[in-house]
Design a protein around this nucleic acid. Structure first.
Lengths: 343, 343
DNA sequence: AGGAGCATCCAAAGCGCTTTGGGAGGAGGC
DNA sequence: GCCTCCTCCCAAAGCGCTTTGGATGCTCCT
């Protein structure tokens, strides 16, 4: 039987009120008393009973997750990695999850149910699309939320954590152009997703600054799997004017792309340069590629942890976080980028 | 404000006790009264407050999940699919999850923390290995659990849901042998995992019945990704005596294998036969392969739902379930299997 | 000296359920 | 007719926390 507040209070010769206040950081308790309480907590291993806290405070101490079950999203490697970060942080604070598998068309209803159920204090939202309607829905439900990513268009005043996709791909492209590449290809995520739109924008912008244009035949949108990376690259290479450089929206795509390149008898980094976005998947390290991969790097797991931390912080009203965070991926140059052939 | 038990009782002119008992299926309440109560519940939309139930019953109404973060497991497509099934069922019963990301070497400690925390009523266990020590640990912690899969060796009396991997691959192999194949290859999951061991055993057994042996150079163990399927197949095909048929432990592996086959200028189903195990991933349907794939089929999502259902049923002590379930995958013949060339 | 004002603590009332320990009333046995 | 035994229901006591609404001294000011 774990020790409870009452016993702790008796042990200390204090009232439950005071002990509770000491633990929850209320000001009306003497500093010395608070120290005594904290010491006793350490010694007895006291942990407040979450069920009781839930009942007393009306908080659920859990966060809601709409888990997309559309083909190939759940299953997406990237989702698992993000979830790991989210969960890692949540478990530290003894928060629960309510996982709601849902097809994209049911998401709105799912959010409503979730909000109405009172089972969660906050929800998290991802896979943003352009003009994503879900933001307005969540606002109207007045349940706290944090978005992973950003919509394009629509309301701007909502909390998010995102990476600067435009800048990342702008910088990557700039590097390629500086190296003399003129025909660069893009193997991107699905067309309707905001991050993909932004990455493409970054590429276009960089090329434009050099008076170049992005050839639409050199742009593919797909799920981010090995297989699609391979196919896209293969099609690029059989074009009359194949690219001398390619940007991939994930190292997973790059894996397939590299295979296609090798298979065509070309060498990565000399015949063709490649830059991928690295989500820091433990499974797929860019430095372990046969030719180490130049990448724009930003940890997906860290983003998950950060979002959890913000959601939880908001619920416990501890600390204040910036509403909107835009992380800047680092461009890390390895051997997969080199001067354009013939330059 | 949602309606609460007290109001419901007043409305009905009953005591809270009686209403509560009516709802929880206790015998000491008149059938007519129970009907009245249920009707009122329907009309008012009453839903018991989980936090209060938790406190009053001491149950957590949530299930624990140790989420493996080893390279390429979380990220594994198959994990997401399983989780979707688990969550789908859990959400129906208003159960929460406690997701504990954990490296394999920390799993024992994680289970201990989880059990001690009192935050979960039951846990689920997967990725079984031979002589898996985790079963004994969970038993000693005396927390209810259900295993997905089975260990090999060690204690036998624990609850599980598994598929008959040996039989599935035995039958698949038998079909190939009947079709005249003599050299069959196996692209399997990681060597230490129980399901992989069993599948191999099924293959060996079937071959043996025809006086054949499994050539160890035709067996590869790896993570079940596209990439590894491709590589394995490629290596098989460049052998002096390439196989005429290949078994894959997942359609994901088959995807890569098929690519390698095509690339070698061979045709699936005529030059080389292929059978894969189909977990029914929505993303990857065997009938959509360029040559529809013969498979052994068993839905991973259904297994997840079933395990959730058993865990939850056990917690609410509703109904009794068989302790051990061994599902038999169906062998579904499509176009990827044909007679051995030259027969 | 007499309050005002602050710092520090406490008793007790919930939060919304489950469960214990009866109690009333009717049926059945002698 | 009386007692026992069910059947069906209830009042009230928790479950372990948070929070409201004071109390109790003390300091400080005028």
């Amino acid at each position: 039987m774990p020790v409870k507040l009452k016993q702790l209070a008796e042990l200390l010769g204090l009232s439950q009120t005071t002990v509770s206040r000491a633990l929850n950081g209320y000001p009306e308790v003497n500093a010395k008393t608070r120290q005594r309480v904290l010491k006793a907590v350490r010694e007895t291993g006291y942990r407040p009973n979450r069920a009781a806290q839930r009942l007393a405070t009306g908080k659920a101490y859990s966060i809601g997750l709409v888990m997309p079950i559309a083909s190939g999203i759940v299953s997406d490697i990237h989702f698992g990695e993000f979830l790991a970060g989210l969960a890692e942080e949540a478990v530290k604070h003894d928060f629960h999850f309510v996982l709601n598998p849902s097809a994209p068309e049911d998401e709105e209803a799912t959010f409503r149910r979730l909000a109405a159920s009172g089972n969660v204090d906050a929800v998290f939202l991802a896979h943003m699309r352009a003009n994503d309607p879900r933001i307005a829905i969540l606002k109207s439900l007045s349940i706290p939320f944090v978005v992973h990513g950003r919509s394009i268009g629509g309301p701007k005043d909502y909390p998010f954590v995102d990476i600067d996709n435009t800048a990342a791909f702008y910088e990557a492209t700039r590097l390629l152009v500086q190296l003399g590449h003129r025909r660069v290809a893009l193997i991107n995520g699905q067309e309707h997703l905001a991050f993909a739109i932004r990455r493409k924008k970054g590429v276009v912008r960089a090329l434009k600054e050099w008076g170049l244009e992005l050839d639409e035949t050199l742009v593919h949108h797909s799920l981010m799997t090995d297989e699609f990376g391979y196919r896209s690259m293969q099609r690029f290479l059989t074009q009359p004017h194949p690219p001398t450089a390619v940007l991939c929206s994930s190292t997973v795509l790059a894996l397939g792309a590299v295979r296609a390149i090798n298979q065509a008898g070309l060498t990565v980094g000399t015949d063709i340069s490649i830059i991928a976005h690295d989500d820091v998947l433990p499974m797929l390290k860019p430095e372990n590629f046969s030719v180490p991969l130049t990448t724009t790097r930003s940890s997906l797991r860290a983003a998950g942890a950060r979002i959890a931390s913000r959601l939880i912080g908001g619920i416990l009203d501890r600390g204040t976080y910036p509403e909107q965070e835009l992380w800047h991926p680092e461009l890390i140059v390895r051997a997969s980028t080199g001067p354009a052939p013939g330059k």
